[in-house]
Design a binder for these strands. Structure first.
Lengths: 114, 114
DNA sequence: TCTATTATATAGACAATCGATATATCAGGA
DNA sequence: TCCTGATATATCGATTGTCTATATAATAGA
């Protein structure tokens, strides 16, 4: 099922930081990996990701390393989490859990609370 | 914990429709009820809700009934779900579950999938 | 030759939320 | 009495996040 784009809003940063938790990745790879891990639910667009990566870099949450491989058409920019980025990831993960729990509570809690 | 505003984006319509599932409500009441049901996680702003309600009405998902009670300072606009609105609610609820499951999968799935 | 894939980048359009402001009444404290 | 806060709805402009479209450039395959 294709989900409403607007649902994605706000969680994209979390998802991108999460991808970098286990090691560096380049942008195009992130799009593919995110699609794979989410069973095609998330099909992040290039026009969304690249500006976001630049923002994350400016904020000091990731660092970039350009690798102009001879085999690739265009040099890849590998991104890695900084310590600050790890902190942000932890915080955004906690925020997500709070948010998701609250939505679930509204959806299931219905009329009666203790 | 106060969550990032942008996380709310896209789920607001779902939450509002859900509130109306059990009967009609007016705007101000929805703000309070949503805050209560979510344990203060959702503090929907008036500037967000009222334009949204007008949109929902235009789309035919809710109907409005104005009640100028003698005891209230200003007449209340009571909103109720239409049949189309119920359909939308069901669809948005399904979308939410798909989306939330995908985020959880990315957060927990990590590197290894079967 | 032409198209698709890999790989990054930017500009402009669009949607959703917010803060600020407006209006109007009533209750309660200083 | 005056002033603040709560009740109740409404609109405007700013900000943010995502998208589509476009650009560039090399390589593989039909």
């Amino acid at each position: 099922m294709a989900i409403d784009n607007s649902l994605l809003s706000g969680s994209t940063t979390l998802l991108v930081l999460k991808l970098l938790e286990d090691g560096e990745m380049y942008g195009y790879q992130m799009i593919e990996e995110l699609r794979r891990r989410s069973d095609r639910t998330f099909e992040l667009k290039a026009g969304t990701l690249y500006p976001l990566l630049h923002t994350l870099e400016q904020q000091g949450w990731v660092t970039a390393r350009e690798q102009s491989g001879s085999d690739t058409a265009r040099p890849r920019r590998y991104y890695a989490l900084t310590e600050a980025g790890r902190g942000q990831l932890a915080q955004k993960e906690a925020e997500w859990r709070t948010y998701a729990a609250a939505v679930t509570q509204v959806l299931e809690g219905g009329a009666c609370l203790a």
